[in-house]
Design a protein around this nucleic acid. Structure first.
Lengths: 330, 330
DNA sequence: CACACTGGAGTAATCGTTTACTCAGACCGT
DNA sequence: ACGGTCTGAGTAAACGATTACTCCAGTGTG
């Protein structure tokens, strides 16, 4: 593989000149620049990234550690991050922590070892420990969920308010016993959605009951079990607030298995506006989160911090939007 | 940030010994190993990846360049690759080419610069050029679609046969004018699915008509337009074979917009068994591709080639499976 | 005309590892 | 007892880029 000295000798200059010509750092005779560029092209020269990063003590790479690649919410964030990063010459490596604290831990180590310029992450839980990153002063931006411990730039959705609005919408539609299927305890988004749900009940002078709430992992099978449990009770809920789209699949499956029709029999509102939401029958009422925008904002914050580590930490909260469809109408 | 010589002096040994103790390459006095490990832990030492990669001339990193992160088929492949790679200590960086040849080209360059151990990719089109990788003898494994030009390890699905079986299934169910919505010309999976569709028609002594075929990008909006065009004809199709799940969303949307019920009015079979397929009404008949397995096989092939560049190139073809549901029953 | 200054190129140090080579001592067989 | 082997640790040379420093020639100025 061609190295910088191959290029240098072919162009008849020193390696320093090649480096300067290619990076445009300092002024170089235009004729030499042309010779260098020609030589580099002829040899198919690609600079050795590790060597460059070793010397520069930093790579133009951002790590994005997301809690689930198969969740469209997170892949949309990823696209937002990528689009911003690429525009300014950064690459993004995507790491899938899979809602698994051990994998997450491992990817944090990888990010440190590879000396990435910064990390964007959606922490799997309150157990997430970013001390290693903080100790090495690697900039970190949290998305979707705040990071425990250190203050850091954070991009969130006002999910508590969104949950409250969704619940109020169900109440306004005449549903009276609203259940909630949310994520595991310790995960902030799960807690917030539950809190918003309770806010709405309280504002309507309803006493919430723990019998109407289930917590489970953010995936379809858990939500399926949870929905079955809720609906099998003597006084089952007449509506469900479901905390993400994978869980919506499980919950809607449970309704179908029990011969219940969403909307008419059990009102349903789920978080995340997935492409298929409008296709199910009846179409699914959802809370649309601005996922792509979360990604772009996070990337901008991270890049700003890479250039100025002293900036104070900020928290950006974006609004979610309720999209009413048939599953919340009798 | 602590370096290897910090660890060395704290443990009272040379850097060479630290390296050997930590990597377990050569025999080191157990007592020294213990001292080194203790010192490393106390300092929070994380080896400098770029330095290590520079010296070793190779990084324990695989690049996975997929054509669309938002397509569940590709994210499932990604999980397969990750699971295998992690087991043997490799990291995976996921790159989203977004069905865009320029982005793909760029990620190939990044992979070369970072000197990754190998690349797994689903080429966006026949324009994909992996010469730069081949010239530097970086191992490449193609998934889902073969690579033009060089022979290389390839993991495919027998998508032509699957398309044929899906079409035969529709014929067996009594549908007579079957239409096909497939991907752009030049993309192998799009061609193969169309070819399988035609195989089935030919075997049934039907003359296919180009009026029943539409090609479009592998996304919902294109498929929506295509389905509308097909259905607006004087002699519209009574069934549709749709080439992936994003397109299925577009096509099912078109049916709904025209007041047509899948199954009863227009039979539908789509590629890819997405989690929501069973939720739509009627449930969607699909061709399930073994995406996760594609990922695991590809990763194994790539790792094998990293260890032995001289292995002959192989092509693995996996079978897809038709899952019959309501959308293909009148 | 001598001298300071400047722009542009080369020389060589440097980043943090890994590893070929060297070397000291322990152990063994004759 | 002595040479040969072997084990395990240290020394120093890479890896390939960037960049501080040096040097030279050309220019401007007093």
């Amino acid at each position: 593989m061609a190295t910088i000295s191959d290029v240098a000798s072919r162009a008849g200059v020193s390696t320093a000149t090649v480096s300067r010509a290619l990076n445009g750092k300092s002024t170089v005779d235009p004729e030499l620049v042309a010779r260098v560029i020609a030589a580099a092209r002829e040899l198919g020269y690609q600079p050795n990234g590790p060597a460059r990063n070793l010397r520069r003590q930093e790579a133009a790479v951002l790590a994005l550690i997301i809690s689930d690649v198969e969740n469209p919410f997170f892949t949309a964030i990823a696209r937002g991050v990528e689009d911003v990063a690429h525009k300014v010459g950064y690459s993004v490596v995507l790491c899938n922590a899979d809602e698994n604290a051990a994998k997450e831990r491992r990817y944090i180590d990888v990010a440190i070892q590879e000396r990435v310029a910064g990390v964007i992450m959606s922490p799997t839980s309150t157990a997430t420990n970013i001390d290693p990153l903080v100790n090495r002063s690697t900039p970190v931006v949290a998305v979707d969920r705040p990071l425990p411990g250190h203050p850091s730039d954070t991009v969130l959705v006002d999910t508590r308010l969104a949950a409250r609005e969704a619940t109020e919408h169900l109440l306004a539609r005449g549903y009276r016993r609203i259940g909630c299927v949310t994520g595991p305890s310790g995960v902030r988004t799960a807690e917030d959605r539950l809190a918003g749900y309770r806010d709405a009940l309280r504002a309507a002078n309803q006493r919430g009951s723990t019998r109407l709430v289930r917590r489970t992992e953010f995936r379809a099978p858990g939500a399926n079990r949870a929905a079955h449990e809720l609906l099998a009770q003597p006084e089952p809920p007449d509506a469900l607030l479901v905390a993400n789209s994978a869980m919506a699949i499980g919950a809607l499956g449970a309704l179908a298995e029990r011969g219940l029709r969403p909307g008419r029999d059990v009102g349903v509102v789920a978080f995340d506006d997935v492409p298929w939401a409008a296709l199910v029958d009846p179409p699914l009422t959802v809370v649309a989160q601005p996922a792509y925008e979360i990604g772009t904002v996070a990337a901008q914050l991270l890049l700003a911090r890479v250039n100025d580590g002293a900036r104070p930490a900020t928290t950006t909260t974006l609004a979610a939007r309720l999209i009413e469809r048939g599953s919340s109408h009798r």
